[in-house]
Design a protein around this nucleic acid. Structure first.
Lengths: 353, 353
DNA sequence: TTGTACGCGTTATCAT
DNA sequence: ATGATAACGCGTACAA
């Protein structure tokens, strides 16, 4: 295939400006800006470059610099449908935006996650693309993280990190969940259930603990069968776990679900049982990914994913730019917040419902 | 930053196999496979490369070949929230998958679409990244398409092309909409409304025409005020247009909405009016992007976006590989299909509701 | 059948 | 303050 665009190279700029390619490079790359090139030639080069619309060839630059400007993102779950995994989806957007601000691009793994978490498939994917750094969303195992560390690739874990010494950005569920419980209590609820993920992960445990602590703070307790744990975040999991809880007459009057997808499942259970929200039952979700677009719009604990993305990119940038070994892995935490919408009302029988 | 991975280059392979780099390149690039290298050396090179896990440096290869292996995707609307624009989102997934099969990568524009559709911003974005080809989703104007043509970049328009001579992949709404109407008629409906986008675009007009034709085929007509047109595909648009239609006593018993987001708006209007689906009103959507996850799960006309993506990539690949001028722009069309779920039932009063 | 030499466009080093 | 030169890793025309 012939050259399709009139390619403007640094040689061309050099020729027209009457200087060498080296000078053009120094002027336009901005390295050691002062005291290198005289102001006159600098202006001349700049003018010619602007006139011709010159932009350095990113491929040549990458080859020479041994740096591609590409960052790898490994989402916890692969994007398939719109509702299964809203958080990785929103993270992808946040990361792309933040990366663009630094001139980085994001490449996302496309391999099947179930398969990929075995072996070195992910490592190979990233190595072959010569990514400058990696954002690892909620890795399943320590071994997976260690593979990347072994290969010395700058790395940051986000959301649900493994307990291993790397840069990380996590979310503090506590303030949001505290506010959610307070909000329900204010509305008059005393019978509040919790539905989230089981397992041993500290992040999951912290979410549950925050709920229990919030109740405790107000002198309340939650019966064990109202602390419901599912194996994974998902619509079906929410439905299946909520159904038996809500079908009995002695049910709670409100529930906090640890994910929009779980909440959607609960919502379906409520519809099936003909329990209207919020008139007959109050519901709060976690994530605030698509809570606002459901019916009714769900009050939700928002995770500031834009922040997570921005901080992750900033940390990665530090590692990439800095001398290796210089940068101590930092751990940052961003807070959650309660977004109040229309899924909470006074429980039946309290204000005379 | 020091070299992070033990880089294995073709020189290294050559050294260990006792041949020149050229031979390694010929063997591994697979060009002119036979009659160039003896079987013995070929095997030797292959063995060494496999043993060392060699993979050619994609950046160096791109620089040499003047081809990056990157394809640009310009979605009709930028991804922001999960529900606004499900189709571009799903297209992105389909394209990435299809591209991976050819060894291409997809880079998606991140610029604000409102801004970008002016000027040469999109062209510059693509030129700077040296993309090998472009997938243009439903361009707003002919001028936008012509800019790319002027720059001789291989191009394929998808979904809602401008009437200009380029490769294209479109969707035929007719079979799906025909089936949808037939499905409603079978259930006993005779009072069926349509809600879709107005404007002059042939694709939008074809959708409406398909609906009218389907009714006509069964000797039915739709009053003008039941053919409702909105300015854009969106949740709010659907709600605002459906509300006055459904609030009156003399309303239709069923409606076909030309987008899941529009249908979601209609669904909200129905909830507001306390009209239950499908008991009191039947609803069919178009897109089948998130219809299945709503409550109730919506019967929907599915667009085979995976197909669209695969064909678009195949066409682009042809253009990129072939001699320029050799490839006549092809136009392909993929059919729609009706996915039956739980949002259609017999109208009230027909079977004694 | 195989090796040599050059160039893709850029940047870093070393002279001047 | 500036320019010549080399090198990043690969593919290919040409020579052997």
């Amino acid at each position: 295939m012939v050259s399709r665009t009139s390619e403007i190279t640094s040689s061309e700029i050099a020729r027209q400006a009457g200087v060498s390619r080296a000078t053009v490079s120094v002027v336009l790359s901005g390295t050691r800006s002062t005291s290198r090139v005289s102001d006159a030639t600098r202006q001349r080069v700049l003018a010619v470059a602007a006139a011709l619309g010159y932009a350095p060839h990113p491929v040549a630059r990458a080859l020479r610099r041994q740096r591609t400007g590409v960052l790898g993102f490994i989402p916890r779950a692969h994007r398939t449908t719109l509702f299964d995994h809203p958080v990785p989806y929103l993270l992808g957007i946040a990361l792309s935006r933040a990366a663009a601000a630094y001139g980085y691009q994001i490449v996302e793994t496309t391999t099947d996650p179930a398969k990929a978490h075995d072996g070195d498939e992910l490592v190979r994917f990233m190595q072959q693309r010569r990514v400058d750094g990696i954002i690892l969303d909620s890795p399943d195992t320590v071994a997976e993280v260690q593979r990347f560390i072994a290969h010395q690739i700058p790395l940051v874990q986000i959301i649900r990190p493994q307990p291993i010494e790397t840069a990380r950005v996590t979310v503090d569920a506590r303030p949001g969940i505290m506010a959610a419980v307070a909000h329900l209590l204010e509305a008059g609820h005393r019978r509040i259930a919790w539905l989230g993920r089981g397992g041993e992960h500290p992040i999951d445990r912290a979410r549950r603990a925050a709920f229990v602590a919030a109740l405790d703070q107000h002198g309340l307790q939650c019966p064990a069968e109202w602390l419901r744990e599912v194996a994974a975040y998902g619509v079906l999991e929410g439905y299946d776990s909520a159904m038996p809880l809500l079908a009995q007459p002695d049910r709670p009057t409100a529930l906090i679900a640890m994910g929009d997808n779980i909440a959607l499942g609960v919502l379906r259970a409520l519809y099936t049982l003909r329990l209207r929200v919020p008139d007959e039952f109050s519901l709060i979700s976690y994530d605030d990914a698509f809570a606002g677009v459901l019916y009714p719009p769900l009050t939700s604990v928002a995770q500031p994913l834009t922040d997570v993305g921005a901080r992750a990119i900033a940390m990665l940038h530090e590692q990439i730019e800095g001398e290796p070994g210089t940068i101590a892995p930092r751990a940052e935490t961003v807070p959650t917040d309660l977004i109040i919408r229309e899924s909470v009302a006074a429980p039946r029988g309290v204000w005379g419902g």
